[in-house]
C-alpha cells in the first residue's frame, strides 16, 4: 500500500484555470450543454437544428455549434435540450456528456503554435474530424474564429491537460534561442 497523495498536487479549481500571456492565453470555459449524437449526419443536424458540423480548420463560430467527430458522430455544444437515449424516429443515439468533457479556450498570436506543440496540426491541413491526440491526450480541437481555438478533453484529464498547456505556453513566452 502506497500513499501518493503528495506526489500529485491538488488539482486546480476550474475558475482558477486562467493564464494570460502575450503570445497565448488560456482559460477554462464551461459550456451549458454538450451532447453526443450518432447516426446519419443530415438527420443529426436536423435534430439539433444546426446547418453543419465543423471539421478542421473550419471556423465553428461561437456556440451553439456542432463539431464533426467522424462520419456518423457529432458533438453539439450549447444546442437544444434533447432526451438522452435512442431516438427511433431519426435513428439517432443521443448522450448528454456536458460534464464529461472539459473545455479550454486558447487565444493569441501563438495559439496555433501552442496547438502544434502537441500534435501535427496546421491550418493548411484540413480534416473532416476534430478528434486528435494532443500530447497523448484524446481531445477535440476546434477553431472558433481566427486565432481562437478550443480543446475538449475528458473531464478526468482536465488537470493534466491544463498543466501541460500552461507549461507549453510558458515555453512559448520565452524567446527562441
Amino acid at each position: 500500500m502506497r500513499d501518493d497523495a503528495d506526489r500529485w498536487p491538488a488539482p486546480s479549481p476550474a475558475d482558477a484555470m486562467v493564464l494570460n500571456g502575450k503570445a497565448v492565453s488560456l482559460r477554462r470555459v464551461v459550456p451549458a450543454r454538450q451532447v453526443l449524437v450518432s447516426g446519419e449526419r443530415t438527420a443529426a443536424l436536423t435534430l439539433v437544428d444546426l446547418p453543419r458540423a465543423a471539421g478542421w480548420p473550419e471556423e465553428a463560430g461561437d456556440p451553439p455549434h456542432a463539431l464533426s467527430l467522424r462520419r456518423d458522430r457529432i458533438l453539439v455544444i450549447d444546442g437544444p435540450a434533447m432526451t438522452a437515449g435512442w431516438c427511433a424516429d431519426l435513428g439517432l443515439a443521443v448522450s448528454d456528456v456536458t460534464c464529461g468533457l472539459a473545455v479550454f479556450e486558447v487565444t493569441g498570436p501563438a495559439a496555433m503554435t501552442l496547438l502544434a506543440t502537441g500534435t501535427e496540426i496546421a491550418l493548411s491541413e484540413p480534416s473532416a474530424s476534430v478528434l486528435r491526440l494532443w500530447h497523448g491526450f484524446e481531445v477535440m480541437i476546434c477553431r472558433l474564429a481566427g486565432d481562437r481555438f478550443r480543446i475538449h478533453t475528458g473531464a478526468g484529464r482536465a488537470e493534466a491537460l491544463w498543466q501541460t498547456a500552461c507549461a507549453q505556453a510558458r515555453l512559448l513566452e520565452t524567446p527562441a534561442p
Partner: peptide, 28 residues
C-alpha cells in the same frame, strides 16, 4: 518535453478529489 514529474503518465483525476483530500485520504 514537458512530460516530466507530475505530467509523466499523469493519472485521471476524480471530480471528488478535493473532498477526498479534505478527509485526509491517502491517494494511489
Amino acid at each position: 518535453g514537458t512530460r516530466t514529474g507530475a505530467l509523466n503518465h499523469a493519472p485521471k483525476r476524480l471530480v471528488l478529489e478535493p473532498q477526498h483530500r479534505a478527509l485526509d485520504a491517502a491517494l494511489g
